[in-house]
Write a protein that binds this DNA or RNA. Structure first.
Lengths: 213, 213
DNA sequence: GTCTATAATACGATAGAC
DNA sequence: GTCTATCGTATTATAGAC
């Protein structure tokens, strides 16, 4: 991939972090990348293509920093690894902030644009499986279904906290603290499930039918 | 407030649910409300004003259906009340779906539009306090800070699950089940805090400094 | 209060020179 | 590959009649 192309993608990530996916104007991107509008249309089919490729690019960058660093000789202990993965998003560093923002935008856009859902659903499955895997190492006795449920909660929470952080509604350190608290709560939750496998969420509390009479 | 104005706001909520805040076109809204574009500019200053007022309107509607129904003579038991409040958002009914969608959009837009943050932050504080209050009735021995932390997690999770539901990534019943599971986990978490108040999230797990060496 | 024009412009996209 | 200039249209917003 040409340098110029990459430079445009990097600029696009910055502009998206500033204006959102739906607020990205080709002209503003051109200014940010110090190129002409026409050059963008030379390197990309149209605005939609540019957006898709930028999101893919951001996604790759995110995977790169989620994955274990090569320098780490011995893998982290499971709980530590889990925390590292889930807290990685909460750092006030341009790249990370850009990725979080773009990712949040992708999610928000998918509510109205079914075309975006495929990529999102796939990334979610992978992400949930990774977190469930970490949880499984922390609580090996917990049933698979409980691990998945906990992982789905943690990843969904991540997004909610991230949105609040990026909107300056929740300070960064609070977001991190909430995330840590949730991990603690879920790990304890799984420990209870492991000790008493019959105990199910669905039957432990009144069903949805009861709630709306 | 005039009927016409209200009718426009109601139509705006529908259009936002279909296209998003940033996808709302004044012309489409005019068609939806069966009025002319000019009338919208007669009743509202400009597009931004219309958006702000629609979001406030939706917010009021949401409060109305969160609040206890007048028919209910005796207040719900605390846990039941908590569940009712947190699961209310997860119903496939036009009004509710509209509110959830508009609310999610408001949050997503606030990341890029500081003007929207004031209203959002205020609504959040109220909403967190309400949930913390319910939690406090379920676990009276839990310290205030732990109640707030749990409430912040539950409300942030609500948003993450809602986004997934509205994007067809998570089926409605799964979203409800995850929410119920989280309530269960948080209530148990608070019970542990109540029994052992010294036990703190911040010290129970490695600090953020340890994680990024 | 409500409508039918119409102005003003912002934005995506392209043509064509270098 | 990269630029300048321009086109076409979608969209916000207003003027002015009723």
């Amino acid at each position: 991939m040409s340098d110029r192309r990459t430079a445009i993608l990097e600029s696009a990530a910055r502009v998206i972090a500033r204006r959102g996916v739906r607020g990205l104007r080709v002209e503003e991107l051109a200014a940010e990348a110090n190129v002409s509008k026409a050059l963008i249309y030379y390197h990309f089919e149209d605005r939609a293509d540019l957006l898709r490729r930028t999101l893919a690019y951001v996604n790759n960058r995110a995977e790169r920093y989620t994955t274990e660093q090569p320098g780490t000789a011995r893998p982290d202990r499971p709980l530590r690894r889990l925390e590292r993965a889930l807290l990685l998003e909460f750092q006030d560093i341009p790249h990370v902030r850009e990725n979080s923002t773009a990712w949040g935008e992708l999610r928000a856009s998918a509510v109205f644009d079914p075309e975006l859902r495929g990529e999102l659903a796939l990334a979610d499955v992978i992400w949930v499986r990774e977190v469930a895997d970490c949880l499984g190492r922390v609580q090996p006795a917990a049933p698979e279904s409980a691990l998945t449920a906990s992982a789905e909660r943690l990843t969904a929470l991540l997004e909610g906290l991230s949105t609040r952080w990026l909107s300056d509604i929740l300070p960064l350190e609070d977001a991190r603290a909430r995330m840590r608290g949730a991990i603690e709560a879920e790990v304890a939750h799984l420990a209870r499930h492991a000790r008493c496998p019959v105990h199910r969420t669905a039957s432990a509390l009144p069903s949805s039918q009861d709630l709306f009479d």
